[in-house]
Design a protein around this nucleic acid. Structure first.
Lengths: 212, 212
DNA sequence: GGAATGCTTCGGGCTTTGCCGAAGCATCGG
DNA sequence: CCGATGCTTCGGCAAAGCCCGAAGCATTCC
C-alpha cells in the first residue's frame, strides 16, 4: 500500500465504485503495463476484487475493512502533515458533496464535522473520536439510533480525511447511517452514475442547520 | 510502515511500553546502524516519539492514533491471510529456537507458550499474563521455584512478540529462568557466537512433552 | 581522567522494485 | 474471418532503498 502509484489507485477507489485497469493507470500516473503489475499485487494482497466485463476488468476495494484501513492511514498521514499534493475534484458539485465509500464527503461533510465538534456532540481525543451522550440524544431526535450502531462490530465514529478539503469528515457506522438517513428523508439523492450527492432545497437548509 | 524491519519495530511497540534503540534493532533483526536509520524514518513520519534517558534512547508510539492505524492494518493483514511479511530469519535453525535477550524465542518458544495457555498453567488477561497456582506447582516439579522469582523486582511473566512467528512467547523472570533450566539440564546449549539454541535429542523430546 | 556502553552518521555493496516498450492473449465489432 | 481495443506478461534497465562495518559523539561507570 505504501507505493505512491498503489496509494493513488486505492484512494481513487474509496468512492466505492469500480474502475477499469486503464482508468487506474491514469490516476496512478503510470503506463498500463506498470499499473497491471501493481494491480496484481493489490489483488494478491486481498485488497482489491476484480470483475471481468467484456474486455474490461473492473477493480474495486475488496471490502469495507480495506476502506477502513485506508481511511485510517490517510488520517494518520494527514496528522503528520506529509500528504502529497493531490489535485482535488475539478467539478464544483463533486467538491461540494459526494459519496466517500458509504458516507458523505466534500465541503458539506467537513463543515458538518466541524459543527459536531463545536457543539460537543462528538469528542476528539488525541486522534480518536467518540460520540458524547449529548450527541446520542440529538442523533436520536434526528432518527438515528446510536445503540443499534454500537452493537455492530464496526466503530461508531471514525474520522476520514476529506480528499478535496484535506480536513476530517465523519465516517464509521454513524457516518454511513447519516447518509442513509439523508436519503430516507429525501433531503438528498445520489446523482446517476457518479459519486455526486445532490441536496434538495429542503435538504440543503435542513442539513445546514441540523443540530444548530 | 511497510518495510519488514519497521513493521517488526512497530508491532513490538504495540504493548505501549517504550523500547530502547538496541532492543528495537534486536526485534527487527537488523544491525544497530540499520535500525537507527529506520528509527529516523519513523520519527520523521511522526509515528514514533523518543525520550532520552542517560545514554539510552527510548522509543514509543507517537500516540493512540498510530496504535489504531497499526491495529487496523494488522487486522487487515490477518484477514487477507498474508501475514507472513517475511519468513523471519533466513536460517531455519534460527527460526526454530534462539535467544531473545535472556529467554527462548522461535517456533519452540511459541509452541510452548501456547501449551502453557492451553493447560492453564498461565492465564492471559487482556494483555497481561500471570502464572496460575497449578502452573506454580508444575514449574516447581520442573525445578523452578516461582516464589524466588516473585521476590525479584522484575515481573515473573511477560509476553514477548516473537520476531519470526508473530505470536507471543514467554518472557520475564520466568522466561529467563526457564532458559537457564534448559541449559542446566543439558537439554539445550547455545551455539557459539550466535543466538541459535540447539536442543540435544533428549532435550528435544523432553521439552516438547514438558507439562503435557 | 580513561574505558565502556549506547546510539548515530558515513560510505559503499547489493538486492529489490518500479518503470517502460514490445509482444502475447482475450474480447468485441464489423 | 479481420483489425481494433483492453489488459497482461516478458525482458531489460535504472533508481531507490536496505544492509552492514567502521568511525564519531554522547553519556556513564570505575
Amino acid at each position: 500500500m505504501g507505493d505512491p502509484a498503489r496509494a493513488n489507485m486505492l484512494t481513487s477507489l474509496m468512492g466505492g465504485q469500480a474502475l477499469s485497469a486503464s482508468e487506474l493507470a491514469e490516476v496512478a500516473g503510470v503506463a498500463a503495463a506498470t499499473a497491471s503489475g501493481h494491480l496484481v499485487q493489490l489483488l494478491d494482497g486481498g485488497l482489491l476484487a476484480v470483475e471481468k466485463q467484456g474486455r474490461h476488468r473492473y477493480y474495486r476495494l475488496a471490502g469495507p475493512d480495506v476502506a477502513i484501513a485506508i481511511e485510517t492511514l490517510m488520517d494518520l498521514a494527514q496528522r503528520s502533515r506529509r500528504l502529497q499534493v493531490r489535485p482535488g475534484p475539478r467539478d464544483p458539485e463533486m467538491r461540494r458533496a459526494r459519496v466517500c465509500y458509504d458516507h458523505l464527503a466534500g465541503e458539506c461533510a467537513v463543515a458538518f464535522f466541524a459543527r459536531l465538534t463545536r457543539l460537543k456532540l462528538i469528542a476528539l481525543d488525541d486522534g480518536a473520536v467518540a460520540i458524547t451522550s449529548r450527541g446520542e440524544r440529538r442523533f436520536a431526535e434526528f432518527g438515528i439510533d446510536i445503540a443499534a450502531l454500537k452493537s455492530a462490530k464496526r466503530p461508531v465514529c471514525r474520522t476520514c480525511l476529506d480528499w478535496s478539503e484535506r480536513r476530517s469528515h465523519l465516517a464509521g457506522a454513524l457516518g454511513a447511517r447519516l447518509l442513509d438517513r439523508l436519503f430516507e428523508l429525501g433531503w438528498a439523492r445520489r446523482a446517476e452514475g457518479s459519486r455526486i450527492v445532490r441536496f434538495t432545497p429542503l435538504g440543503e437548509t435542513g442539513f445546514a442547520k441540523l443540530f444548530d
